[in-house]
Design a binder for these strands. Structure first.
Lengths: 345, 345
DNA sequence: CTGTTAGCGCTTTCAT
DNA sequence: ATGAAAGCGCTAACAG
C-alpha cells in the first residue's frame, strides 16, 4: 500500500504540531478558525484519511459490531441484518456478519473471533444444534461487551432481547385453521429447546385447547428447517390412521416440503388439507399456491435490536438493565389455508 | 469492559520484559523452552488475549477483508460469501459483508467505509444502477488495496476477477430451447451495461444465429431482477402479434415473474411456452413447476476469489498481474422447459 | 489558542 | 536468550 498521510505529515508541512491538527480535524472549539481552515484544506490536499485502527486502539472502541446468525440466505435473517445496518451505518458503525450454519461450534468460534476483532458489541440469533454451552457467553458478559439477542434468544441475566410474540403467532395461525373448519391440526416444530419454537408450539397447543378440540401429541413432530425434512415428516402424518386436516409448521421451508408431499399424493390444498408456515419468506407469496404464513417484521426487529445496542453502549457502565422488546406477529392469509372465496393479499 | 490483560501484565508478573513475552507467545526460536512454557502458562492463567487492533496498527494489516454484494438475500451471493468464508477463516481473516442494494451511491460509501476500517482487500460484485463512477475504484487502486471482482466485474487494468462463462451459459440455455423445438425465443435481460448480462445476451443471440433462426431484437427486453418486472415484461411479449414460444431470462426471479404471467393467461408451460432462468436459485428446484436454470457454482466462485486475494496479498508489491478465472456454467434442465418425457434432476 | 508529553498494546531492531 | 527502546497513528491531560 502506498504510504499514507498522517496528521504528522500535515503538522510538519504546516509547521504546527500533530495535536493541533488532530484537534482542528475533530472540530475542537478552542482552535482558531484560521488554522482549522488551513488544516482541513491541507488535509484534503494531501489526501489525508484518518486511521481508524489507531483511533480504535486509542479509544478502545472499534466501531464494529458483530452480527451472528444461523445463515444469511434466508430472507428473514437478511432482512434483520438490513434493519441493523440501516440503524447503525449512519452512526458510523460497521457490521461484521458471521454465519453459524446452525452449528454451536461455529457459533463459539465466531464469538471468539469477533471478540478478538474487538467489536463493540454482538447482536445474535442463537443456533440450533450442538451441545449446550455457555462459556463463550460468559466470556462475553465478563468482558462487558454488549450482547443483544434477536429472534432466537436465550434467557441470560442482564442480556436484552428483541423477539416477536411467538406464542401469539402460533396461536393466531392455529386459530385461523380452526376458523377454516380444520379439526385435526398437526404441528411441525423445530427444535423446542429454542424458545421461539417452544413458544410457537405452546401457542398452537393453547389455541387447540381453548377451542375445545382434542390435543393430540402424536400430531406434533420435531424437524430441522430443511425442505426435505418437511416432506419426510409429512409422510409420517399422512400415513397415520386418522391423518390431520391441517398442518401448522414453524418454518416456511418445512411447510414447503409438506406441500410437496401432500401434492405428490394427489391430495388437494386447501380442500383436503390446509397448510400454514412461519416467517413470511418471499417464496410463500410467489408460489402458484401461495402459502399462508406469519410475518415477523424482520427489518423492524433489526432496527430495534440496533437501537437497544446503542442504548447499552451509551449507558453508564455500572447500571445493568435488561430490556425485552416483543413485537407482534401478523398472519398473512393466502391460498394454502383459505377455503372460502376471497384471497387476501 | 473489564480491564484486559496485556503482555506487560504478564511480563511484570514474571519479572521479565514485554518483548520476551511477545516473542515467547509468537514462537520466536531464540526463546528458551523454559520461559516459553512459563509465559504461555501465565498467559492462559491470566486470560490473556492478543489485542488484534494493536497488532493491526503495528503491522498495517487488519486481517479483515470486505465483501461487497448487491444483496445478501439471494442464494447466489450468500453462497459465494460462504465460499469466501470457508477459504479465509482458516487463514485468520475476517469477512465484513456490505450490501449495496444495487445503488451506486451505497457502493461508493461501502468502499470508503471499508477502506477506513483498513481492510486488507475488497472482494466485490458491482452494482447495477446509478451513474458510472470510477473514483472510488481509483482510490482503491491508488492505495494498492487488493481488489477482486467476482461475477459482476468491471474491466479495470490490473484488477483480477472470477466469473463464469456467461456467454456459454446464455448459449447453452438457448440451444437447449431450440433443441426442444422452440423457434421464437425471447430474452429478458438485465441491464446490459453489466458484463454478465451483456454476455448472456450475446450467447443467446449467437445460438439463435448459429441455428439459422431469425434474430429479432424486439424479443429482447431489458428489466431489473425483480419478480414483478418479469411479469410486466412478459405481458408485453405475450401481447405481441406473434408471441414467443420460449423465454430465456437472465435472472431466476424474472423467470418466476414470467411464469406467473404466462399461467395467469391460461397458457401451459412447457407445452405452449418454455421458460429458462439463470442462477439456479433453490426455489427453481422447489416449485411444483420446477424451473430450468443455469448453475454458476457460487461456492466455488467464492473460494477461488478468496484464493486469488490471498495470492495478491502475498505477492511482492511491485509485480502487478491480472488474473481472470472463468468458470463453466451448467444447465440444470427441469420441467419448465422439458417437453419430452424424462425429467432430469 | 496551541505545544508538550504520554500512552493505547504490540512488534522489532539493536544491544548485551 | 533476553532487555531496552522506538514506533505504528491518534487523542487527551496538562501547560502555557
Amino acid at each position: 500500500m502506498t504510504k499514507k498521510t498522517t496528521i504528522y505529515d500535515i503538522a510538519e508541512k504546516l509547521g504546527i504540531t500533530a495535536a493541533t491538527v488532530s484537534r482542528a480535524l475533530n472540530g475542537n472549539p478552542k482552535i482558531s478558525e484560521a488554522t482549522r481552515q488551513l488544516v482541513s484544506d491541507t488535509a484534503k490536499e494531501m489526501n489525508y484519511e484518518q486511521n481508524k485502527l489507531a483511533l480504535a486502539l486509542k479509544s478502545g472502541k472499534s466501531y464494529n459490531v458483530g452480527v451472528i446468525v444461523p445463515r444469511i440466505d434466508s430472507n428473514f435473517f437478511a432482512s434483520v441484518i438490513r434493519g441493523i445496518e440501516e440503524e447503525l451505518y449512519p452512526k458510523g458503525y460497521h457490521v461484521i456478519i458471521c454465519q453459524t450454519h446452525d452449528q454451536k461450534s461455529l457459533e463459539i468460534e465466531n464469538i471468539n473471533s469477533l471478540l478478538n476483532a474487538q467489536v463493540d458489541g454482538i447482536l445474535m440469533s442463537i443456533s440450533n444444534s450442538g451441545p449446550e454451552e455457555n462459556q463463550s457467553f460468559d466470556r462475553l458478559i465478563k468482558k462487558n461487551v454488549p450482547l443483544i439477542f434477536f429472534d432466537r434468544k436465550k434467557e441470560i441475566e442482564g442480556v436484552s432481547s428483541v423477539t416477536i410474540d411467538d406464542f401469539k403467532g402460533g396461536y393466531q395461525a392455529t386459530q385461523h385453521l380452526i376458523d377454516q373448519g380444520c379439526r385435526r391440526i398437526a404441528h411441525l416444530s423445530n427444535n423446542r429447546k429454542i424458545e421461539i419454537f417452544k413458544n410457537r408450539y405452546l401457542g398452537y397447543k393453547q389455541a387447540i385447547i381453548d377451542n375445545g378440540l382434542e390435543f393430540d401429541e402424536s400430531l406434533v413432530i420435531e424437524t430441522t428447517s430443511r425442505v426435505a425434512e418437511g416432506s419426510k415428516s409429512t409422510k409420517v402424518l399422512l400415513d397415520m390412521e386418522t391423518p390431520p386436516d391441517a398442518i401448522f409448521s414453524s418454518s416456511d421451508f418445512v411447510a414447503l416440503g409438506a406441500i410437496q408431499e401432500i401434492k405428490s399424493r394427489g391430495l388437494k390444498i386447501p380442500e383436503d388439507i390446509c397448510v400454514v408456515g412461519f416467517a413470511n419468506e418471499p417464496f410463500t407469496r410467489f408460489m402458484e399456491l401461495s402459502i399462508t404464513s406469519v410475518d415477523q417484521s424482520p427489518v423492524e426487529m433489526g432496527r430495534i435490536a440496533a437501537q437497544v445496542f446503542m442504548e447499552e453502549v451509551n449507558k453508564s457502565k455500572k447500571i445493568k438493565t435488561q430490556k425485552q422488546v416483543v413485537l407482534t406477529p401478523e398472519l398473512m392469509i393466502r391460498k394454502s389455508s383459505l377455503k372460502s372465496e376471497v384471497i387476501a393479499h
